[in-house]
Simulated assay, not measured.
Amino acid sequence: MTDCTARGNGTNGIFLELQQDDWVPPRGIRITACHTEDNRYGISDWGADGLLVTGCSMLGNHVAGRRVGGRVSGNDFSGNGSASTRFDSAPTGGRWRDNAG
């Protein structure tokens, strides 16, 4: 997914989910140069194996810019509600400012 905008959604701006436990998790998903703003969560991952989020802006989301799994690198997390990100793996690079929590 490249160069997209998700704004003003009630829950997730961008949402990836493995619906069935017996399915093979999707692999190689990349989210690049996307913008999420004014969502509950900017980008949420609930089952993509090896997700990479890079060069995205996650601004003013009500709870967090990003939530759970995958890797993040070189993103802009600004003005998000309770946390800039809730993650399983440590993010690298990017800009982190004015996030609560």
Rank of each mutant, 00 (worst) to 15 (best):
D3L: 07
C4H: 02
T5R: 15
A6C: 12
A6D: 06
R7M: 10
N9T: 02
N9M: 05
G10I: 09
G10W: 05
T11R: 08
N12E: 11
F15L: 13
L18T: 13
L18S: 15
Q20L: 13
D22G: 13
P25M: 01
P25Y: 01
R27F: 02
A33K: 07
C34D: 09
H35T: 12
T36H: 00
E37G: 08
D38R: 09
D38L: 13
R40S: 14
R40G: 11
Y41T: 09
W46D: 14
W46I: 09
W46V: 07
W46N: 14
D49I: 00
G50N: 05
L52I: 06
L52G: 00
L52Q: 05
V53Y: 08
T54C: 00
T54D: 04
G55P: 10
G55C: 10
S57H: 11
S57N: 10
V63H: 05
R66C: 01
G70P: 03
R71D: 08
R71I: 01
G74D: 04
N75W: 02
F77C: 06
S78N: 13
N80V: 05
A83E: 01
T85E: 06
T85L: 05
D88P: 01
D88Q: 11
S89M: 12
A90T: 12
G93T: 08
R95N: 15
W96L: 08
W96D: 00
